[in-house]
Design a protein around this nucleic acid. Structure first.
Lengths: 121, 121
DNA sequence: CGGAATCCGCAAAGATACTG
DNA sequence: CAGTATCTTTGCGGATTCCG
């Protein structure tokens, strides 16, 4: 095993810790088309709680992937958008998405086969 | 937001649940060059416990990404390798790794800036 | 509207010991 | 060597409440 693989590994682990959580990818994909405000984002991502959306956005913001813009109106309005850095992540994530789509049935079959093999009774 | 994005999203979430955990990527990368036996794998992946390595390998095996070969010798020997499906995942993962390598300093700087901004005291 | 603060349950992960 | 079994700990994520 080469040194490069090890480095890739560590770096990949690092970025997986950025977007490997339950909601980050959903947020990134939803911001792919442009700025979206908090409440719209919450509606768009089914099942997410207010707290997790806030936490996820804070995380992405701290990593420089998402920007936050506050409009001091009443009621207040906050827009979120991908930064330039965040948009560059869109491509690799899409690659993964394509892989996932393409091999989903294969994985499904493998899982069923594994189930049968481990619990034949 | 298009329907396609939503689907990609779900599919990506699915595959992130395969390899988004703490150790799977490490294992996949380490198997990139060919079959590796359990104890060598454990040595190669610093910090992993015997239990987590076992669980991770079982998970990857059940998804059809990794194959397990037992040699009935004494002492026993077990080799793990990427399946054909597992090898196809190597490319997208490498893409992500390259992205991670390239943007690591940028992310690092963003984090430090965010820290300073949120706790200026 | 867009949060922050608090409490809590559960599952993932770690440590340790034992086994074919 | 390559696991399994058991216990403990950690921390993510959900629900709820309160605030500017």
């Amino acid at each position: 095993m080469t040194k490069r693989f090890v480095d890739d590994c560590v770096a990949t682990r690092e970025i997986l810790s950025l977007i490997g959580d339950k909601w980050s990818v959903m947020v990134i994909v939803n911001l792919g088309d442009g700025a979206v405000r908090f409440s719209d984002l919450k509606r768009a991502i089914e099942g997410i709680s207010q707290r997790m959306l806030t936490l996820t956005l804070r995380g992405l913001e701290s990593d420089g992937l998402v920007s936050r813009t506050v409009f001091p109106t009443t009621p207040p309005r906050v827009d979120y958008a991908l930064t330039k850095l965040g948009r560059t992540l869109l491509d690799p994530v899409t690659e993964l998405a394509i892989w996932a789509q393409r091999h989903r049935p294969e994985i499904q079959r493998a899982r069923e086969a594994f189930q049968r093999a481990s619990a034949p009774k």
